[in-house]
Design a binder for these strands. Structure first.
Lengths: 374, 374
DNA sequence: GTGTGTATTGAATCGTATG
DNA sequence: TCATACGATTCAATACACA
């Protein structure tokens, strides 16, 4: 796949040197297969681990030995132990391949998510949010003995407590949500209809296929175009399909040949959306920094110009070096803005205003003109 | 109190032989105080333990005002290990006093609920549901670095895996929810206004007072009139107040004298309601808002799609995050709709149209399809 | 009384680039 | 590595002042 990146991701994969595992499904159990990936090689992980304890040979201990006897006489404690060991093992394998700036998503229900979450904390992952997926059309509770189980829980975490620089496309999600910030509860329908993969027998291929809308929001929020997304329990490839659609790379791990076959066919049919519509709303943080002095250098403001607050009550004078003076306060636009208000901090760009033919406008408007021209 | 029970609770307390702890607050830490209660003496437990928040420095709002965070001593733990030991201890003490038919509710956030849930499973509690409380008015994320933390999680569990005969008032809740099954997501406002207890200084008495509406639904669903409800972290007594209101008994444990004082005054003022009038006090939650981004997530519109005004004169392109681009205008459907018309505001849902096999239709028609399907 | 505008507040794990 | 400076960032509900 040609790169769709305008601002390249940190782990830039040019077509010449793409590793052979990129945009493929590795067949096998996730712990052994993840050993094929280099350390710190993926930008994000989406994991939908099994929570059914009747896994047969599915459980392996951290030392790779098989857990046997899951099927019948296990008491609850022992089953939880086995599940915990399995969880710890795949999470550790994921942590190894995740970049320091990467984040991980894990989805589960009350059967397993509490164990998974506690283990994630024990392994040093740092929780950023738990997000609940509210199903518009959940299966009812037939026996009337409990509440309709109408949601699943996702944990979104960074690799370490002090990890900096993880991707969160705040502005894009805010726009997506009609200009209010996206919340931790997402209302989306379950996967049905033509999106649900069916076999020749007309039966669903995978029992827990996730809707593409869910992955759309996950990937849009926490990855950038060109990023590599790992799904260690790939199933029928929802993560891969949405990743391809959104111009992200994927790598999947899956044990079941039938799932792999269905996933490959599905992903092959996906047409990536084009570059221009892949651009999403950018934050001001991502824009190049413009020092205030630039406004003086290019003549937008003159030394000696007077700036005011929004109401025109407080004044400051601009000096030739881009510092302000207001009474006893001297310094940057931010420092003086904070000083005259008696606050610890202040964004001078939005606080200070200049006179534009009789109307007061924030100096941020001048900065925006420079940015637009660039 | 006259019995209001239609199906009497198993542990029937006649007025002659009421234990002295009934409808009182025990002062002290919950592990030592619970020793005063006989084994199997309470029908239900609602626990709101410390969350073990691990807050960094101060936090300010965009207007530079300071957020009053939870920095109380009772929420400080040295490590996950210490928190786990504490959790195990109080849960064990609760299990002893809970009847075999009883159930327990525990509320928490992503900071602690995963640890609590895993320990509950380890101790043999059997999860019936996890229920998410969706806050209509949560605190925003002021830094724009995460999703708005808009929910808390409650675990509802029976005492043992094979416990039979726990109370679940299925029909009552169904009636309360406009004749459809009550789901595992509850939309309720946080505790503010006159319900929020304030001290003489006008400040909140307790940093984390829960809304009565939450306890109302908890107690209505899983207890019967006359039942005994234990709250081991009583705080300012929301559990006791709602229990009294609903004709249930309570017993609380609390260490802080100020909280106890406030709780006693509060509960004294409660007038039990006439249970026959119960059904009319709740209504179905408001239909969820459908943001424009949903149309992309579910594939109704593709990134790159072109929208027009009603006459097909003005164009805009849809990007992957649901923002529009039209000439120099970028942003939400509403913002760009206003921009291209030179107006202050615009309802993008009715202004923008898509091509539906040759006929222009407002995108609001797509939203209506989603609403109808829900 | 009625409406309008401003201030306050809530369980929060809430930066990053530069030198 | 650490200290410093830049400068980005909020939603719903209540309460109260004021016209």
């Amino acid at each position: 796949m040609r790169s769709l990146v305008s601002s390249p991701s940190q782990f830039d994969i040019s077509s010449a040197e793409q590793p052979d595992w990129l945009d493929t499904i590795l067949k096998g159990d996730c712990i052994s297969q993840l050993e094929k990936l280099p350390k710190h090689s993926v930008d994000a992980i989406f994991a939908d681990p099994p929570y059914n304890l009747q896994l047969g040979g599915g459980l392996t201990r951290p030392d790779q030995s098989e857990v046997d006897g899951v099927t019948n006489d296990w008491d609850q404690f022992e089953s939880f132990q086995a599940y915990d060991a399995f969880t710890r093992a795949w999470l550790l394998a994921c942590k190894r391949v995740l970049k320091p700036t990467g984040t991980v998503w894990v989805i589960g229900s009350y059967h397993n998510i509490f164990r998974v979450g506690a283990i994630m904390q024990d392994l040093g992952f740092w929780m950023l949010n738990d997000v609940v997926w509210l199903k518009t059309n959940p299966m009812p509770n037939f026996r009337g003995k409990r509440f309709t189980n109408a949601h699943e829980t996702m944990i979104w975490a960074s690799r370490d407590k002090d990890a900096k620089g993880y991707t969160f496309n705040y502005e894009a999600l805010k726009v997506m949500n009609d200009d209010t910030q996206m919340r931790s509860d997402w209302t989306l329908p379950i996967c049905t209809g033509h999106e649900r993969l069916k076999g020749d027998d007309g039966k669903k291929v995978h029992p827990t296929q996730k809707p593409e809308s869910l992955l759309y929001r996950v990937l849009l929020s926490s990855t950038n175009p060109g990023d590599v997304v790992l799904d260690p329990f790939f199933g029928t490839g929802t993560t891969g399909a949405v990743a391809k659609k959104l111009g992200r790379h994927f790598v999947g791990v899956e044990r079941d040949s039938d799932y792999i076959k269905a996933a490959n066919a599905r992903i092959d049919a996906v047409v990536p959306i084009d570059l221009s519509s892949l651009q999403t709303t950018q934050s001001k943080r991502a824009a190049p920094r413009i020092p205030f002095g630039r406004l003086l250098e290019n003549g937008m403001l003159q030394p000696g110009a007077v700036l005011t607050d929004k109401k025109g009550k407080l004044f400051a004078m601009v000096r030739a070096d881009g510092s302000l003076v207001s009474g006893a306060h001297t310094g940057s636009i931010h420092k003086v803005g904070a000083g005259v208000q008696g606050l610890e901090a202040c964004n001078g760009w939005t606080y200070w205003h200049f006179d534009n033919n009789g109307t007061r406008e924030p100096i941020d408007a001048l900065r925006q003109i420079i940015r637009d021209a660039a």
